[in-house]
């Protein structure tokens, strides 16, 4: 597992400044929950970690190494595409809308990365996929296509797929926001297990219960800045800032 460090990260979309200097450290095996109103920049921050979004300035390191950039003289330059791909494969990502590959079965989704990128043999990849799918409680759904699975099942396959690349960090972008309420629990359970296993996790979420129970740190973002961060119990029950208070008053 690796730690993740953010150094003064800025991100502009055109003239709009979405991230205004984010400094944050996620220690090894820590679970950090990013909360905040929509448009606060938390998803963008997450997407900067694996370079799905390019930062405007600042740096993010995973285990001491940048994903999308190299140092060139006294500034940063975007790394070459193959290099980014290689480094990116160490970071698992789970999306709000699952994004399972629709033309592959659950098992094939989980085998795809290891076979093509880790050059695992088909037999090993299949054994690995079976084990991962069993871990997320889907041993009986291996040969189903995503369209045959419920949202909660799809998201669990998506987690297994991310794990198949043996990541050092897992990023979750509102993993339960697209789910029917009764399916949220099964996904959170898998994530809790992952946290117990010692995975470094950054989770953008609206599930305050999860943040409280599993999070080591809760980070409240608003308008592109980190307003407040700390122990979940403190931040969620005794927020210090007005903006945190008014946000929590609305969601809890």
């Amino acid at each position: 597992m690796s730690d993740v460090k953010f150094f003064n990260v800025h991100k502009n979309f055109g003239h709009v400044e979405v991230l205004k200097g984010i400094n944050l450290t996620v220690a090894k095996q820590q679970v950090v929950c990013l909360i905040g109103p929509s448009g606060s920049g938390k998803s963008t921050l997450l997407r900067c970690v694996n370079h799905l979004e390019m930062t405007t300035s600042g740096a993010i390191t995973i285990g001491g190494r940048m994903i999308g950039y190299d140092v060139r003289g006294d500034q940063l330059q975007e790394a070459s595409q193959p290099e980014i791909n290689k480094r990116r494969s160490k970071i698992g990502m789970v999306f709000q809308s699952f994004n399972l590959f629709g033309h592959m079965t659950a098992k094939e989704n989980v085998m795809f990365g290891p076979i093509k990128l880790l050059k695992m043999s088909k037999k090993d990849a299949e054994a690995h996929a079976r084990e991962l799918l069993r871990k997320v409680g889907l041993a009986d759904k291996m040969d189903n296509y995503p369209s045959q699975l419920s949202g909660g099942q799809q998201q669990r396959v998506a987690i297994a797929r991310a794990l198949s690349m043996k990541p050092e960090v897992m990023l979750f972008d509102e993993p339960t926001s697209a789910l029917d309420p009764e399916l949220v629990g099964e996904v959170l359970d898998v994530m809790k297990q992952l946290a117990r296993d010692g995975m470094t996790m950054i989770v953008v979420t609206h599930e305050m219960g999860f943040a409280r129970e599993v999070g080591d740190v809760v980070v409240f973002m608003d308008n592109g800045v980190i307003v407040e961060q700390g122990d979940p119990q403190d931040v969620l029950t005794n927020p210090q800032h007005e903006r945190t208070k008014s946000f929590l008053a609305k969601v809890i």
Binding site: N50, L52, Q81, P82, N85, K86, R87, R88, S89, K90, I91, G92, M93, F95, S97, N99, L100, F101, G102, F112, G113, K116, L117, A158, R161, A162, M165
Partner: peptide, 21 residues
């Protein structure tokens, strides 16, 4: 959907691999 490419890219697949597979 764009999410399909994003998922593939986030795993470390190149643009060409993403397109092809």
């Amino acid at each position: 959907p764009a999410g399909q490419s994003e998922a593939s890219r986030s795993m470390g697949f190149s643009q060409l691999h993403t397109l092809r597979f």
